[in-house]
């Protein structure tokens, strides 16, 4: 920052001139400063929050791994849930993996969808079902900044695998058919082996009587549609008895990217439950079994 000449060379300025000059220059400086602050804010949102979230996610990952190891051990202490390090708001109880985003894609899932939870990683809607249960396992995640676990959620296609890992099981969900695929689904299903166990959840088409008539692989909804994570999406909570409900997964994030005007919703259905012991606790083996390698 160098000193700018305040007085013109050889020209005597009146006091009025100088006051006007000062006002205009100060206004200009303030505007430039405001622009720089806005750019810094963009940098903060897109990068700085990623760094802090990456660190939190790493710690959460280590804590979850340790808790699961202790559960495996024969001499697991009664209070296996607590450990020496300060967990803060970390409440991870599962892990989500999406093979379409690469074999290394994994995040711990927090219990809760508050800002504090979502800063660490994707969060589970506390009222929604647990992994593998009938009903709807609802998970929210950031699309920009804070690790942005769901940044590419719009790139998922029907039948893409969504793997939820608990202490003992891999639950393999697959994205439901998209709206435009529902009618010709039987033909698509026979063509694509990964779709073999993915049904449209419909008996007779799209009638309003169909409990799952509004449930498709991907939807854009307004932010007030909290029924997207209802046991039967977009229906009253008691529309089906619990044991007749399909075991679904629902991922939610903001839409369009960089805005929260709407929400991007991805629905999937449980197709397989693989005990970890069956694949030697190895995600790579699971991927092979799923034909994802």
């Amino acid at each position: 920052m160098s000193q700018r000449p305040e007085r013109g060379n050889g020209v005597r300025r009146t006091a009025g001139h100088r006051a006007g000059y000062l006002v205009i220059r100060t206004a200009g400086e303030l505007l430039i400063t405001a622009g720089v602050v806005l750019l810094l804010f963009v940098f903060y949102t897109l990068y700085v929050t990623n760094w802090t979230s990456a660190q939190l996610q790493r710690e959460s990952e280590e804590r979850l791994e340790r808790a699961w190891d202790e559960q495996d051990g024969m001499d697991a202490p009664a209070d296996a849930g607590t450990d020496s390090t300060d967990a803060g708001t970390d409440s991870a109880f599962a892990r989500i993996r999406i093979p379409a985003f690469g074999p290394d894609y994994r995040y711990t899932v927090q219990s809760g969808v508050d800002a504090d939870h979502l800063e660490i990683g994707p969060g589970h809607y506390p009222q929604s079902a647990m992994p593998g249960e009938p009903g709807n396992f609802g998970v929210a995640g950031h699309r920009i900044g804070r690790g942005a676990p769901f940044t590419d959620l719009d790139e998922l296609g029907s039948c893409d695998a969504l793997v939820v890992e608990t202490a003992t099981n891999f639950f393999v969900y697959r994205v439901l058919p998209f709206d435009e695929e529902i009618d010709g689904w039987e033909a698509i299903r026979q063509r694509r082996p990964e779709c073999a166990n993915v049904s449209t959840l419909r008996d007779t088409g799209d009638g309003p009587g169909e409990p799952y008539g509004d449930t498709v692989g991907r939807r854009i909804v307004t932010p007030d549609r909290s029924d997207a994570v209802a046991p039967v999406p977009y229906r009253e909570v008691d529309v089906l008895p619990r044991l007749e409900q399909a075991a679904l997964i629902t991922l939610t994030t903001c839409h369009p990217q960089y805005s929260d005007r709407e929400r991007l919703i991805v629905h999937g259905v449980l197709t397989q439950q693989v005990p970890k012991s069956q694949v030697q606790d190895d995600y790579g083996q699971l991927l092979e079994q799923l034909g994802e390698v």
């Binding site: 949102t45 929050t49 979502l118 950031h142 920009i144 549609r225 805005s259 929260d260």
Partner: peptide, 12 residues
């Protein structure tokens, strides 16, 4: 400021 701005709400 960030939570007050309409960019990054992801839950329904």
């Amino acid at each position: 400021a960030e939570p007050l701005l309409p960019f990054n709400n992801v839950s329904v």
